[in-house]
Each structure stands twice: as structure tokens, then as C-alpha cells.
Design a protein around this nucleic acid. Structure first.
Lengths: 220, 220
DNA sequence: AAATGTGAAAGTCTTCACAGCA
DNA sequence: TGCTGTGAAGACTTTCACATTT
């Protein structure tokens, strides 16, 4: 398999193809064409083929792609042939929702520890995950070997937590706090921000004639 | 102000600039340069200037941008000079977390109604928002004038809910279910998927030499 | 006949670098 | 002097279109 210098959005698409492939696999579909993957993922067939060809040749001409085989290939590309250990900082509403989100486990991510600044939460288990004090962060991250840290704290605390996670040795951070984190260059961070996504929508709505309560049919 | 044909990622950056400007405003900072905005948002100064220049000339040469003025300008561009009515479908863990997320209200988004398929939840209020039955969706969306629908249901239900929201007349959808939704062309959808973001990280970790528990200093 | 894999073309986005203004 | 606004250059991404393979 080729090493590829692939863009962020291409990786995102690969994840989407994989999501579709798993669904097709569940239904017993054996073969899928780039066209079909494209339709169901909002890409074009050429783009699907290009994305995949960055890593090798996985299809059969005249036929398409073998579903389980391509799913496994994408697992390999995305680093999903193994499980990942994740820790979560901030057991508030979002943090709790994540602890209870069973898909994480199903898709290969094990939450091995949680942390919270509030004394009342420390020592308890939430959805089977033990909540530690912030003071224990560095020790517990090392002991559990957590590789990915999720930040679900208030924004004021996020930068400090990011620094602590970095120095405790996590290799990547998923950040739910609405702030831009400063971290060492080699520590990838993805930020998920609901308000930011909503603003992306309101931008579009204010350009077009929003507020006119239309919609409702699929007309072009 | 110019009308601009601006990319998705540029809109995302505008939101980030706005987030920073609000923080600067809170601290009483009066003027900011493209360089400063760039540093704190992970962009370059040229990009900040370019992004803004798509919509007009808002800075003062030799000086920078007036913070409250630029914040207000970006509010205008992003459609945030008004409040938006939002409804939420699926009062599970994520849905509940969103209902309790006070930032939404602070940033101009009012959740005016919630819906759930479970009988036990219907009729109750969650964080001050009344939960309706799915059967009431179309009526309540029309009555409340909800413009944006948030889908926080299990993936199996998401497509059906999207169709119901579309036909009830919402103008945009924010989707937390890990599926690609098929909706009328003129109905923008943004999907937020934790697993997809995590996979973006594991992709990077498996390219580099991950698993070596390094990191910890801010060295270049 | 059908669908891949891929160069080449087209299109988009980002960076450069500097004229011009406060 | 300092920093914006912006054409032009460069980098990157997507689409096209077709030779190739099953």
C-alpha cells in the first residue's frame, strides 16, 4: 500500500466510505462500485476512485470493489486494525454523553479513564468509567496508556487541560471546548464546536432568502 | 458589503475570528491586526485579510481592525444580528446535553421545542424545553417557527426525521447521527460525527510513529 | 459491457509581495 | 512606519475523459 500525502477532507471522505462499507457489509452486499459509494456519500465517482488510488489499487475493473476487502483496507489506512485508548477530561453534560456513547466502543475506541475538577464526581463511576481528580491526570494517563485525550471542559479550562494532556503523553486531542488550543506541533487536535457549525448554517440561510418558510419538496 | 462566493472553510474561519473578537471585546481590546487574529486562530495573516476582503474593507491601514466594529460586521456576514429558532429531535444523551448547553442561547440560538419517540419523555420539560411526540413534529415546528432542526436520534431514525423536518419547513439541519442524509438540494445539512473526527486522528497517528509515548514539550 | 486507475485540464484556495493609505 | 487590501503566482484539489482490464 502506498504512503499518501492526503488532505484532511480526503481522510474525512475515507471515513465516510468506510461507514458506508460497514453498512453494506452488514446487509451482505458483496461488491460496490465507485459510483454507488459516491452517490451515498455526496462525492463523485471520480473522487472516490482518486481517493482510493492514493493508497493503491483495490478494485476490479468491470466489477467494482469487494466490500469486506475494501472495508478492511480502509481500516488499515485509517489505523483501525487495532483498538485505541481514550481518556476524557470533563464529566459534564457532553462528557457524560460521550461516556455513554456505545458506538465509540463498537468502532474501536475504549474510554479508559475520566477526569473532573469537581470533588463530588471524583471516585464515582460513570457508565463504567472511573472518574479521577485532575491532580491524578498525568499518573493515570501514563498508567492506562491513553493515546487520545478528549477535552469536554468549560472553555476557560481547556488550554490548561490540553497542556496537561500533552505533557502526560497523549498523541492526539479531540476538543469540544470552543477555543483554539495551542499545543506542540506534532500533537494533532480536532475541535468540534456546535455553535461554529450552526453559524455555518446561518451564514447560508442569510445569503439565500431564508425566513421564507419554504422547503418541503425535492424540486431543483 | 460585497456579496461573496466563499468556501465552507472560509466561513468556518470567519466564525473563529468572531469567537476571538468576542473574547478580545470582553477584555476591552480595541484594535487587532490580521497578524494577531491569525496567530490565535491558526490561519495566516494574508488569509485573514483575504477572507475579510471578500466582503469589504473593514480595517484601517497602519492600524488594524476595530474590534467591536469587526465583530459586528462578522455578526452581519454570518447572519447573527438576529436570534434563530431551533428544534431538537431525539432527547437522548446528546440531545439532553444540547438542551442544557447554555452557550447556544448566549450565541443567539433558542431551542424552542424538542421531540422524542419514547412515550415516557413526551410531555416533560428538559432544561426548560417541552418534549413533544414525533407525531406532533410538523405541527409544532410550524407553530414555533423553528428554522433549524437538530437531529440527535439513533442513525436508523435519522433519515426519516430529516424528511419530516424538511417537509415541516425547517431551513437547515444540524445532524449528529452518523449517516449521510438525503435532503432537498436547497436544505443545507452539517453533520457532526465524533467517530469520524477520531478516525481523522488515528489516521495521522498511524502514519507517524504513534504509540511511542513521546510528546510533552513545545519544541519545534 | 462495465467499471477501474490515472494523466491532463480545469478549478479552487492559499500564499506572496507590494502598492497605497493612515 | 505599520498594516491593510489585492493582483499575481503558486499549490493543491477536483473533474474529465479514456486506455485498460476483467
Amino acid at each position: 500500500m502506498k504512503e499518501a500525502n492526503i488532505s484532511d477532507s480526503a481522510v474525512r471522505r475515507l471515513s465516510q466510505y468506510l461507514r458506508l462499507l460497514r453498512e453494506l457489509e452488514r446487509r451482505g452486499t458483496e461488491v460496490v462500485s465507485s459510483r454507488q459509494l459516491a452517490e451515498r456519500s455526496g462525492a463523485t465517482s471520480a473522487q472516490v476512485r482518486k481517493d482510493l488510488s492514493m493508497f493503491g489499487s483495490f478494485g476490479k475493473r468491470g466489477r467494482g470493489y469487494d466490500v469486506p476487502e475494501l472495508a478492511d483496507t480502509l481500516d488499515g489506512i485509517l489505523g483501525l486494525r487495532r483498538r485505541w485508548r481514550v481518556c476524557l477530561v470533563g464529566v459534564g453534560k457532553i462528557g457524560t454523553a460521550l461516556l455513554g456513547y456505545r458506538d465509540l466502543g463498537r468502532r474501536g475506541f475504549d474510554i479508559v479513564a475520566a477526569f473532573d475538577a469537581e470533588k463530588e464526581k471524583v471516585g464515582h463511576e460513570v457508565f463504567g468509567v472511573k472518574v479521577h481528580s485532575m491532580a491524578a491526570l498525568e499518573r493515570v494517563v501514563r498508567e492506562t496508556g491513553a493515546e487520545i485525550g478528549i477535552i469536554a471542559t468549560p472553555p476557560e479550562a481547556a488550554q490548561e487541560v490540553a497542556a496537561a494532556l500533552a505533557s502526560a503523553g497523549v498523541s492526539a486531542i479531540l476538543n469540544f471546548a470552543p477555543v483554539e488550543l495551542e499545543v506542540p506541533e506534532d500533537l494533532p487536535v480536532r475541535t468540534m464546536d456546535v455553535v461554529l457549525e450552526l453559524e455555518g448554517l446561518t451564514y447560508l440561510l442569510s445569503r439565500n432568502g431564508a425566513g421564507e418558510g419554504s422547503a418541503g419538496d425535492g424540486e431543483i
